[in-house]
Amino acid sequence: MEDILVVENVTKRFGGLVANSKVTFSMKRGEILGLIGPNGAGKTTLFNVITGVYKPDEGRVIFKGEDITGKPPHVITRKGIAKTHQIVKPFNDMTVLENAMVGALFGKRAHQITIGEAKEIAYQSLELVGLAEKAEEFAVKLTLRQKKMLELARALSAEPELLLLDEVLAGLNPKEVEEALEIIKKVKEERDLSIIMIEHVMHAVMNIADRIVVLHFGWKIAEGTPEEVANNPEVITAYLGDPRYALRFVRRKGGEGDGSS
């Protein structure tokens, strides 16, 4: 299968701080790729480079064989990449439905659909993520969990081929995490999506991802199947450097082991 996305040697600096160093990976169409790493590893920055929010200092991003490096975000969105924000950014004084309509009107089929069609697409996305009955509420009234789902619905309304999820599971309780994972699996199947997800909820990403890329201080330190990555000593050290996650990671790893046997 063709590579839907190739990230080549991407380096992004903020002044003296190097947020991404020579990051290289590629993913196949239809894959779910997990992107993990301790806080500040440069995961969100990498998403921002892929979606054109930041221009990389070096390197290239290739989407469906086309070099999209440095193109403005709205152009990249139209080519078929959609992203959710880690820090939710709802359009507060618009309704939930209107929020999702923005995604539809300016997504993959921008300028080809009417407001009425956009409404339908938006409503379907809301149904998928379970926000349909909130459609007419103002986004500002949603809970954080619902705002995260709205981010997802907006991104889905754009009808992307590649979906970038930045910690959509953060802050959800275990039951909600399960539900959200089901939703993600479902849309992936229905819409033939490729997904990269940034996650700190380790068991979730280990469970759902086909492959995992690990960033640490901006560098890619590992790549492989969940098992390979979980047993990679460098990865474990990286997480041990961040005690909060080390514990969780080690615990989940045990859990994963049980599940796979």
Binding site: T51, V53, P72, P73, H74, T77, R78, A82, K83, H85, K89, P90, F91, N92, D93, M94, V102, G103, L105, F106, G107, A110, R154, A158
Partner: peptide, 10 residues
């Protein structure tokens, strides 16, 4: 409402 989010949404 939010210019950066709007740009990212296309």
């Amino acid at each position: 409402e939010d210019e950066d989010a709007a740009e990212v949404l296309g």
